[in-house]
Amino acid sequence: MSALGELRTLRRQGAHKGSQALSEAARKEERAAYLFLVPWLAGLVLITAGPMVASLYVSLTDYNLLQPPEFLGLANYLQMLDDERLLNSLGVTFVYVFVSVPLQLAAALGIAVVLNRGMRGLAFYRSVYYLPSLLGGSVAVAVLWRRLFGADGLVNQGLALLGVHDAPAWVADPDTALGTLVVLNVWTFGAPMVIFLAGLRQVPVSLYEAAAVDGAGRWARFARITLPLITPIIFFNVVLQIIHAFQAFTQAFIVSGGTGGPSDSTMFFTLYLYQTGFGNFQMGYASAMAWVLLVIVAAFTAINFWASRFWVFYDD
């Protein structure tokens, strides 16, 4: 790493030489950058930004979707403070994020490492482990989850064999329903697993070989070489999985039949937002909720980026 560091320093020094030549080069680089960004900028202006700002405006209005919005000011935002179901849904969402994201990422990384190399039949195993993620939000999952975690589901039948007879009806009990969704999320760890795998594949074998010559053990090699080199990928997964988990919707929607039940125990923030907007025709309020969520998620993402300086190592 130190050799790379030296190179980096050299490069930086070089960059500050000859300001005249630099600004010419810098201008060229900037022009190139904007050219490369043309599709993205066009998408931002034509497709993404308009609806986003429209929803920000709508969040300040009473908008029932069928009639033009009426301006309200901050009323929607103030109403949230008194909305117990909303505060509850926020709590459910936070629990979900903080429990399921670490579990899912740990499972994904662990299995990606095991399935990276050194075993026969890896391609097969990888595919098998990805299978649940293919099912994703399919309606079949709803039935499946009830069959697994219902009162007379497979899990309880298994427990009965072990002598446990008073197990709850996991999906239908407010104390455990959210837990089954966490399990569902962990079970579909395929996406971060594949990203980890791809990251692991970028780690040059030569580094391992060098370390093996040095006599480093397997754990030492993992901790000293693999882990630092894939920190950008770990970082990516952490950031994105948190963003996704805060917006978790489909699985709760499908498993609870759209209700967020039993007794609001799986009422995620976005599910409540959706019910409010489309079920109750309060798109103004729903939009306000969405922007609150955006601020929360953005804050977490910003913290993540700030914290990343301390543990993420880039090669550039």
Partner: peptide
């Protein structure tokens, strides 16, 4: 930011 807003409001 563009991926932080739920689809339902946009």
């Amino acid at each position: 930011l563009t991926i932080m807003l739920p689809i339902h409001v946009v």
